[in-house]
Every structure is written in structure tokens, then in C-alpha cells.
């Protein structure tokens, strides 16, 4: 099971945080800070794994990847394969790259909703359900269309009925 997916920049500002078990927000923030403090002390060109039991409890593993100004982090337990999780980060980033054509930190900052749409197609309740970025893109585009459609119907009636009501 995947326990958490985190993205944060090299200053430690969280850009995406998703925990698959319920945690109070204070605890979430504490974990994000804890993860960052370990990450930022890692030298370059070392392995992408971290011992993280002190933060996430026994049998927790963490893989991360460093992209320009961003860390992408996955926390998971013994039912996942470390190298496969590293591949999964790659899948996620590739998909985002297709979504935003050449993804950068700003895309992630401003597209909260879409980020989650992408992530939710890949990881479902902590399980990896999709690893093909083409499939993910297909679903995400459908979702965007549906959202746009439901909002466009909404615009006119909302304002008109709103005015008439008074």
C-alpha cells in the first residue's frame, strides 16, 4: 500500500500532499516537515531510498526523486517494490509532463484540481491501479470535459435566476 504522495520544492514548501490514511492536519504538516528535513540533508547522486520508520511507523519505506526545484516523494509499506515505486514516480511525472507540456513547479502550484485528478487515476485508495500514462490522460481529459460542461450550463442560469429572484 502507498501511504502518502508528497511533492515539495527545495525550500520545503509543500506543493502536493496526499495521505491515504486519515491523519489530522497538524500531523500531516509535521510529517511533511520531517520528510523535508531528511531530504534536504541528502547529498546528490546517492540512492533514492530513505529509512523513515521514525516518522511513519514500522515497515515504512520512502523513495524520492529530485527534479529541478521539486522533490517527488512516495511513502509505502512492504507490499510495494522499491524500484517499482521509483518507476511510478516516473509515470506520474511523465503524465504531468503530457498534461502541462513540459511541467514545471508553477504548473503544479496552480493546478491543484488537475494534479489530484492525475494522481487519483494512478493511485486509488493507496493501491496502484494504473501505470499507463496514456490511460491516465484519457481519463483526466474526460474529467476535464465533464467539469467544463457542467460549469458552462451553470453560468447562465446561475446569474439569470439569481437576478430574477430578487
Amino acid at each position: 500500500m502507498i501511504k502518502a504522495v508528497l511533492m515539495m520544492n527545495t525550500q520545503g514548501k509543500p506543493r502536493l500532499a496526499k495521505f491515504y490514511d486519515f491523519l489530522p492536519v497538524e500531523k500531516q504538516q509535521e510529517l511533511i516537515r520531517g520528510v523535508f528535513s531528511v531530504l534536504c540533508s541528502r547529498p546528490e547522486n546517492v540512492s533514492n531510498f530513505l529509512e523513515i520508520n521514525s516518522l511513519f511507523g514500522p515497515d515504512s519505506r520512502l523513495v524520492y526523486k529530485h527534479y529541478a526545484t521539486l522533490y517527488v516523494v512516495l511513502v509505502f509499506d512492504g507490499s510495494e517494490n522499491e524500484l517499482a515505486m521509483l518507476d511510478l514516480i516516473q509515470v506520474l511525472v511523465e503524465t504531468l509532463d503530457k498534461c502541462f507540456s513540459n511541467v514545471c513547479e508553477l504548473d503544479i502550484v496552480f493546478n491543484y484540481s488537475k494534479m489530484h485528478a492525475v494522481l487519483d487515476e494512478i493511485v486509488f485508495g493507496g493501491q496502484v491501479l494504473e501505470t499507463s500514462s496514456a490511460e491516465v490522460m484519457k481519463a483526466v481529459e474526460e474529467i476535464s470535459k465533464l467539469e467544463a460542461a457542467s460549469n458552462s450550463i451553470s453560468l447562465v442560469p446561475k446569474s439569470v435566476s439569481g437576478w430574477r429572484g430578487r
Binding site: 506543493r15 500532499a17 500531516q28 484540481s113 446561475k158
Partner: peptide, 21 residues
């Protein structure tokens, strides 16, 4: 109005996830 409400909720979700609100 559900549109107003939902946008407010979305903003709250954002603040909760990234700013610990």
C-alpha cells in the same frame, strides 16, 4: 448557491492540504 459553496470548499481543501488549516 452551490457554485459559491463548492469553490469555497475547494479553497478550504487546498489550505488544509498544503497549509495545515
Amino acid at each position: 448557491d452551490l457554485s459559491t459553496k463548492s469553490i469555497a470548499l475547494q479553497k478550504l481543501s487546498y489550505l488544509a492540504a498544503l497549509h495545515g488549516v
